[in-house]
Design a protein around this nucleic acid. Structure first.
Lengths: 107, 107
DNA sequence: GAGCGGCGTTAGCCATGACTTACACATGGC
DNA sequence: GCCATGTGTAAGTCATGGCTAACGCCGCTC
C-alpha cells in the first residue's frame, strides 16, 4: 500500500479525483461528499476506501460520521516517483545530446 | 490531450508504466520494447498510442522502425497538478491548525 | 518489382472495476 | 430500550479497456 502503482490507479478515476479535490479544501464526511457528486453514497465510500488504501486520504471517526482528510503520504509517493523519473529522463536526454554532438564532430 | 486526467489514466496501467520506464533509459523501437515484456507487439503499440495521446512520449520515424522517446510535457502536467494540489492541501492543513489553536486558546 | 521486416489497426474475447440496491452495524438523542 | 442518522459491506449488473490474432500499409534491399 502507498506505492506509486496504487496512487496512480487511484487517481486515474475521474470520480476519485473529484473526491480528492474536494478534500483538498478541507475535511469532509462521506454523505457530505456524496451530496455534491453524481454518484451514490456507497460509491463514494468505496472510492474513499481505494484512496485510503493508496495512502492518499486518512479517516477519523466523529460520532456517527466519519471525517476524511488528505494524507500527504500518497502525494509524496507520486512526487518521489516523478522526481526520480525526471532525473532519469534528463540523464537520457543528456546522453543522446552527447552522442549527437560526437556524431556531429566526426561526420 | 496532455491534461492531468489523461496522464494519470495512462500511468495507471502496469504495462504502460513498464514501457514508460524503459523509455526513460533511452529511445527504443516498438519491437525492441515488446521483446522484454510479457505482452505482444500490438499491445505495446496500443499502449504507446495511449502514452502519446497523454503527451508522455513522442514518436519519430526511422526507416521501417519507429523510435519512441519520453516527452517531458506529460511529466510537466503531472508535476503542475501535484504542485497546485500540494499548495491547496497545505493551505487546508494550515486552516485546520489555526482553527485547532483557536479552540485550544478558548476552551 | 518482388520479397521482407517493422508497425499500426481492426475485431473480438474476456477480465477488471465502477455503480446501484439492499442489508448489517455503530453512535446519539428521545 | 428504541428509533433515526451515518456509514461500511455484499451481491449483482453493466460498461470500460487490455489483450491476442489477423490483416494491411510502408520502407528497405536485392
Amino acid at each position: 500500500m502507498a506505492n506509486a502503482a496504487h496512487a496512480f490507479a487511484a487517481l486515474a478515476d475521474p470520480t476519485r479525483r473529484a473526491v480528492f479535490e474536494r478534500l483538498a479544501r478541507g475535511p469532509r464526511a462521506v454523505g457530505e461528499l456524496a451530496k455534491g457528486l453524481p454518484v451514490s453514497r456507497p460509491a463514494v465510500s468505496q472510492h474513499l476506501a481505494v484512496l485510503k488504501e493508496a495512502g492518499l486520504v486518512k479517516d477519523q471517526a466523529d460520532g456517527t460520521r466519519r471525517l476524511y482528510r488528505i494524507d500527504p503520504a500518497g502525494l509524496g509517493v507520486i512526487r518521489a516517483w516523478l522526481d526520480r523519473f525526471w532525473e532519469d529522463s534528463l540523464a537520457s536526454f543528456k546522453t543522446e545530446l552527447e552522442a549527437a554532438m560526437r556524431k556531429e564532430q566526426r561526420p
